[in-house]
């Protein structure tokens, strides 16, 4: 880790020489105020709401009252098969989609970085283009390409006697995965590519003079040296997977039922909100935040242990 801490830009001790310290406070304050209001307050409010349950009287005539009951919502979430199933689905999604996407991104970055590549600028730009397309619009586009009756992809495959049921129960999760992969591969590629660019040329030259093949150099030198970028993109991809919402939500209306309203945890929480079940929605949000936190930190711990040894 020592190299890493050297690379990290030091928080310099600027020469303020007893200048009014309130200048710094004045500059930070506007951001701080909105940060507290728009990040900390809602989070605190969600935790607070998740600790209460709505109690209705027998006839349902008077307004329901909030009763402090810190565990009920959490127990309900963990014993809710629909919520658990959505967690499992997203976990499966992440375990498959994240390695595939980052594998593609790494391969693409290595190819564009390689000496055999021509028109590098063109390929960089085309792979990054999907990033400029909003997630829901990308999902709209792909849904048109997927839709059974009019799918132009299946029209192309028809002469071969192949029809891909993109929106069937078994396929739909991977059709969603394809949309996400399409949207984010180029973005991850750019991060990995820029790390590749910063590998000192002398190291690569030395390996070449020693007779290492291009494959060997890529596998034994380039990939280990872009490790921080790979860790970064992995963590962002884990976070992105936990957010899975836009793509399945858009596909839902054309999926013919293979995507239900609790397909992903965020969709489940959103459905609970739409049903006015705020405490339960709050509890699921908190659970999800904690799970993502644990996952990211665990990943960091594991990858760091590797680098220390």
């Amino acid at each position: 880790m020592s190299v890493v801490s050297q690379i990290r830009p030091p928080l310099r001790k600027p020469r303020t020489k007893g200048r009014p310290a309130h200048t710094a406070a004045m500059l930070v304050a506007p951001f701080a105020v909105f940060f507290v209001a728009m990040y900390l307050a809602p989070l605190g409010f969600a935790i607070y709401r998740s600790l209460f349950v709505l109690k209705r009287d027998g006839l349902g005539l008077s307004a329901p009252t909030m009763v402090f009951d810190p565990f009920t919502n959490y127990l309900k979430a963990f014993s809710d098969p629909v919520f658990i199933e959505s967690l499992g689905r997203v976990l499966l999604f992440g375990v498959v989609q994240v390695p595939v996407m980052l594998g593609l991104a790494t391969a693409l970055a290595l190819l564009i970085d390689s000496r055999s590549a021509r028109a590098k600028g063109f390929f960089r730009l085309t792979s990054f283009l999907p990033y400029a397309v909003p997630g829901v619009i990308a999902a709209l586009m792909w849904s048109f390409l997927y839709s059974g009756s009019s799918s132009p992809i299946n029209a192309l495959l028809e002469p071969l006697g192949v029809v891909i049921p993109f929106l069937s129960e078994d396929m739909v999760l991977w059709s969603v995965a394809n949309i996400v992969t399409w949207g984010w591969t180029g973005y991850n590629m750019i991060i990995i590519y820029s790390a590749l660019q910063s590998i000192p040329g002398e190291i690569l030259e030395a390996a070449k003079i020693d007779g290492a093949s291009a494959w060997k150099i890529a596998w034994n030198i380039k990939i280990p040296m872009v490790r921080p970028a790979l860790i970064l993109t992995t963590v962002f991809s884990i976070i992105g997977t936990a957010q899975l919402y836009n793509e399945p939500k858009v596909l839902q209306s054309v999926s013919g039922g293979s995507i239900d309203s609790a397909f992903t945890p965020i969709m489940a929480a959103q459905a609970a909100t739409a049903a006015q079940n705020y405490p339960y929605a709050a509890a699921t949000s908190v659970i999800l935040a904690v799970l993502v936190g644990i996952l990211s930190i665990t990943f960091f711990k594991i990858t760091n242990r590797g680098s220390d040894s």
Binding site: L11, R12, K13, P14, T16, A21, T23, A24, A25, L27, V28, A32, F35, M38, Y39, P42, L43, F45, A46, V235, I239, G240, A242, Q243, Y245, I266, A269, Q270, T273, A281, A282, S285, L288, A289, V292, G293, S296
Partner: peptide
């Protein structure tokens, strides 16, 4: 970046933590 004041590291730490939490999780709250 340019002033040293008490709690600077804390503020920066909180900002970084916020970068790493999915924004969508704040939407329902």
């Amino acid at each position: 970046a340019k002033y040293s004041f008490r709690g600077r590291e804390v503020v920066f730490g909180v900002v970084l933590a916020a970068v790493l939490i999915p924004k969508i999780l704040f939407t329902l709250p």
